[in-house]
């Protein structure tokens, strides 16, 4: 079932067009990622899908047109926390459960489950404002999921979290997927999108650039691997020229003490050995080397001509 169907949606704020003929579909139980830099239109399309804003043109259909109890079936986990800081964890959850339509009998077990699932049990009587950032985010998720929605929007869910918390978040999202939820994630983090999403859409300036599975996008648009050598003192220009000539690769770049050598997919290991030996023979001190596989960042870079991180 198509949980979300967006067809030719455009949005204007006055004269300014923020969405330009965007179309995509999201299947049930998918984790759909919306990638793009600031101002790409991710939040706008999310708001339109959630019903917070109206599109200027186009069509958005949720749950194949089923409109009954629509708000009970969708949820947003906003980027910034959205709960009462002066209420305790449990009180927040109970309140939002109530306004989200849960009956009295349903509230208690649901709240208990969420607190347990998100490890909030120890903090149930603690004022939300007194929680650490990570646990506030968890409470944020809990408040959004209190009514057990089918379609969940995550807006930049792991921004500002430490790696451990990020990992935990990813696990929870995957738990939700396993529970049959359809998830839409907007994120800046390519690794997150790559790790979590079953389908991705790249946006820029209100336009949908590409849409597809992460691996497909990488293989199609990601480009090639790149060897990066960290050489103490850098490499001389003539040596860089030699490497280019030998490898027949004119995209060899040296920047400070880093040497970037793009490799084709085949013969990767042999070429690594050959270049490494040559550089060592020349007396260069190679402090480290890595192989950078093409990723979504590269996909974005290759499609948009600019890096996500550069823009940030």
């Amino acid at each position: 079932m198509k949980v979300v169907s967006v067809k030719n949606v455009s949005k204007f704020y006055g004269q300014k067009q923020v969405l330009d003929n965007v179309s995509f579909d999201i299947e049930e139980k998918e984790i759909f990622g919306l990638l793009g830099s600031n101002g790409a239109g991710k939040s706008t399309i999310t708001s339109i899908i959630l019903g917070l804003e109206k599109q200027s043109s186009g069509n958005v259909v949720l749950f194949e047109g089923q409109k009954k109890n629509l708000k009970k079936r969708i949820a947003l986990v906003p980027q910034s926390t959205a709960f009462y800081k002066d209420f305790s964890v449990e009180k927040n959850l109970r309140f939002f459960a109530s306004v989200c339509g849960l009956k009295s009998k349903q509230i208690k077990p649901r709240v208990k489950f969420l607190m347990s699932w998100l490890s909030l049990e120890p903090f149930k009587d603690v004022k939300a404002g007194h929680l650490s950032g990570g646990y506030q985010r968890l409470l944020n998720i809990a408040c959004s999921l209190v009514h057990d929605p089918e379609l969940i929007f995550f807006d930049e869910p792991t921004v500002g979290l430490d790696p451990k918390m990020r990992q935990m978040f990813w696990l929870k999202i995957q738990d939700l997927k396993a529970a049959g939820k359809t998830i839409i994630i907007t994120t800046h983090y390519m690794d997150e999108a790559e790790k979590l999403c079953t389908k991705l859409a790249l946006m820029k300036n209100g336009k949908m650039l590409v849409i597809g599975k992460p691996r497909e996008l990488i293989s199609q648009y990601g480009g090639i691997k790149v060897m990066i050598f960290n050489i103490t003192g850098g490499v001389k220009k003539e040596d860089i020229q030699k490497i280019r000539t030998v490898l027949n690769q004119f995209t060899v770049i040296s920047r400070d003490e880093l040497l970037f050598i793009p490799f084709e997919q085949e013969h990767t290991f042999e070429k690594v050995i050959a270049v490494t030996e040559w550089l060592m023979k020349k007396g260069y001190n190679i402090s480290s080397s890595i192989t950078k596989e093409p990723n979504l960042e590269d996909v974005f870079l290759n499609i948009t001509g600019e890096g996500m991180k550069q823009q940030e």
Binding site: L52, L76, T81, A82, F83, Y84, V99
Partner: peptide, 15 residues
């Protein structure tokens, strides 16, 4: 409620 972003949640609620 606006600054704590609660209004967004309330707006999305079925109430």
């Amino acid at each position: 409620e606006k600054t704590e972003n609660v209004t967004l949640r309330l707006e999305l609620s079925p109430t």
